[in-house]
Amino acid sequence: MYPANLYYTKDHEWLKVEGEEAVVGITDFAQQQLGDIIYAELPPAGKDLEAHQVLGSLESVKSVSDIYCPVSGEVLGVNSELSQAPDLINKDPYGQGWLVRLKLKDKAELDALMKAADYEKYLEGLEH
């Protein structure tokens, strides 16, 4: 459910490091909470984002949820498939449902994120 090679945030985003870059998405838990996603509003390429800054938002039929940037970085690109198929986020949150690709600014920020085991513990805490 929660791949070991990813970093996680308390706001239910995941981050995958690929060299100096990183891919960001939302977790399986998050997509379940949101329900059927109908629209993803994502930032333009080239935008500089600070850690915890609003990166975009995801809409379901009756809600809008902000997505936060897990770490600081420049937006290199967004998942253009989502404009036609936002349901990819529901179907494959860790794969085809990714949201943005970032150029990392400071790898030290990764230390503040959770590993899969921590995140799972965190979720257990939420459910009680």
Binding site: S60, V61, K62, S63, V64
Partner: peptide, 9 residues
Amino acid sequence: LSTREQHIR
């Protein structure tokens, strides 16, 4: 497209 509207956003 109600997410544009006040009762949601």
